[in-house]
Amino acid sequence: MSATPDPGEDRRAAAWRIAGAVTDPEIPVLTIADLGVLRDVRVGDGPVEVDITPTYCGCPAMNMIAVEIELALEKAGFGRPKVNTVLQPAWTTDWMSEDGRAKLKDYGIAPPPKGGGRRALFGVDTVPCPQCGSIDTGVIADFGSTACKALWRCNACREPFDYFKCH
């Protein structure tokens, strides 16, 4: 994907494509378009305005994502954009695209199930191993390397893996 506008491409579409190509610093295989974190791009007379929404309340990647968007758009000749954080509608893992889910799995992270919703207090999740597909898996730690992940293990291929928590 090129980081400059194509001639003839609508200016808003170009800004959207460039902002949307910014990746999550903690899961570099996912773009913010895949994640559903990019909500709107407005192009008018003033600076380009970009709306993003946080995944988790305390997600430390959000500040970095905002800076990356500013850099990408400035580099593409859009001038300094204004990046806003919007809270509604609240992000859930259902905002993640099918493409994003496939990329996560290829990267070795089990994607969140679609339409997960709320479970019983000790509800048991079924999480297929992203390596071998077995559902004979179990949790090692509820809280993993980042706020959005838990650490799991596959009992079939014995590999540990990250699970992007359903949220």
């Binding site: 946080p54 309340c57 305390g58 997600c59 809280f143 390397s145």
Partner: peptide, 17 residues
């Protein structure tokens, strides 16, 4: 280690809220 991660992550959620 697991609780080190858990306590820090729960703290981060709350500070984010």
């Amino acid at each position: 280690m697991e609780e080190e991660m858990a306590l820090a992550n729960m703290g981060l959620d709350l500070i984010g809220q």
